[in-house]
Design a protein around this nucleic acid. Structure first.
Lengths: 193, 193, 193, 193
DNA sequence: GATGAATGAGAGTTCATTCAT
DNA sequence: AATGAATGAACTCTCATTCAT
């Protein structure tokens, strides 16, 4: 049970993003996902343990790619400030360009029990760690003040970006999200100095 | 249906906070709330339309009190900086002192459909507006830079506080939340200058 | 319990005819009847045992008046044929003039359990008996054949009238019911001869 | 939803006739039908929309067979009188031989909302049409008077047969229903002449 | 007698999950 | 591996009826 590879694995995952984004996690039935994926209901259970497992796998997949790509982006940066800007840009751009993913990440993902949040927090933590590394680097480079609490800085940074995106999703994506890149960066970087 | 006053209305609301915090919104059955409140299942439906109505009413009640009290707090402040500090302090302190409310606000409340979020966004907006007023005031007082985008500033401020509290709740409230008041304030206020 | 007199008894009964006719027996809630009657829910139970009791009492009231008035009508008739015509005319006219009563009698009344039909069959039987008396009289007067089975004749007569009215009610009362008086009479009287 | 074929479809339908006849439509729970059919509660919903859908499907099935068979019977008849007799005989015989069907047709079927009667009236109309055809034929053959209103004649014929059967069912089937064939036929045919 | 808030049993319906094919 | 019919536990919500005031 829970075969995690194969062609249908991806097909189901993609059907799930679409369906969750359209219908919402709790209103989505396994049959909806199966239908969207063009497979039988039972087939879903060959690849996933249950509905929550789909949502978590979804997020883990997205997040792994997200962090991997972001790491590559950061290799091109010279210092913490550049890296912070790149993080903000990449985070905003990625979700601006993938509305279904944005909907699932910002809204649907929060609709599951605390217990199961463990499945979410692990891949999320690697992102958190990335941010914290940049903050540390900034402190070493003398760009950010020495007595800055790295943990709290990370929470403020992530909370700010996250809230900005959530507001955008809730607004029905009514404005240009990427345009918020600069003012958010400016606000955060000054706060860190 | 949906009688919004009376002794039992409050009793059920209080039972709901407790039960949602303990069991989680989706795992909570109406029977659980009724049992906790010491009333019959049917009685719940005299006062509330359904389970979601309870959650929304809950939040509206909490939020109204929250904003009302916060407004009073702000009357005692001399300038925007003092007000911003008061907001952060009040927000952190309130949720630190009411663990059930914190759990419901930070976790359970996000577990309902986007559609129903309307019931949540209205009272939330009055809090957002309060923050934006303070930012505006700070700009007028020359404390914050003139080209600061008030909307974005508000999102960063709220997002930061919200994330800090969510992390604390997810950690099982393992540390002193109120202690984060100063570093968060410092970070934000510098960002606004 | 089940006080069968008083001003409110009549008020509730009238409210019930209206409500049953409008909403249908099973979809009608006691609260609807109480509301229509302008009394409290509980008051209904001072005068009636339960919802079925209301429907039965309703029918008994209507039927008693119906039979009483019909008896008077028949006093003015010279022979069985005249009486039969009067029965048909009176039956059709009465229900044509009282749409709510027609709806309740032809449709709603049939929506209760066989067991409770006892409450209905008693007043109905006095109508049946009236018809049978007329058939017998016709036989004695040499108007109807001697070997006519009175019971069966009554069933055919009542069945014919009843079906004619039911069709009219189901059609949404789209045509003149009373106009069917003559052809129905003709058909039946010839059958009896 | 509402798969209208398959082995279980028939099994559930047969269980429903039995259960409705025994317990009455409104007192019958889906669980009772499922139990009688030897399937799970949920299985019923694979084949039927809801309880009313079962009752209607039931009647449509019975009525289709009824009309089909009756049409075949009528092929063997020479004239309208023979056909009328065959109709009466067939109608009485069929229900006399299938007590459950009789109970459901005469009693339970009348216990549903007017709105839903639409599902009933369609198959019923094909029976009505059959009767009217015979009346027309009789008029053409000079057996029945020319000025006879076909519609009304049909109502009287159907009403008579229907009432005769209903009385028999209500009596607890205490006498020989088929024996009423001749007197009913005689009464009706004379009425038509 | 009248009220109407409170009761709580009851049933329909959904849908995640299983498993024989 | 894939299917999809069948399962049956779970849970919301309704509403007839009661009874303290």
């Amino acid at each position: 049970m829970a075969k995690r590879t194969g062609e249908k694995y991806q097909v189901i995952l993609e059907a799930a993003v679409k369906t969750f984004a359209r219908t919402g996690f709790h209103r989505t039935r396994i049959a909806d996902i199966a239908g969207e994926a063009g497979v039988a209901d039972g087939t879903v259970y060959i690849y996933f343990k249950n509905k929550e497992d789909i949502l978590i796998s979804l997020f883990q997949n997205l997040m792994n790619t997200f962090v991997e790509e972001l790491k590559n982006e950061l290799l091109q940066c010279q210092n913490a400030n550049e890296k912070l800007e790149r993080i903000i840009t990449y985070h905003l751009t990625t979700l601006a360009n993938r509305p279904d993913q944005a909907k699932v990440t910002q809204i649907e993902l929060r609709q599951i029990d605390q217990v199961i949040n463990k499945g979410i927090s692990k891949p999320l933590k690697s992102y958190f760690y990335l941010i914290e590394e940049v903050v540390e680097e900034g402190k070493k480079q003398g760009l950010y003040r020495h007595n800055l609490d790295t943990r709290i800085a990370r929470k403020v940074i992530f909370g700010a970006i996250d809230e900005v995106i959530t507001c955008w999703v809730m607004s029905g994506k009514a404005y240009d999200l990427i345009a918020l890149r600069n003012p958010v960066f400016e606000l955060l970087v000054k706060g860190l100095q």
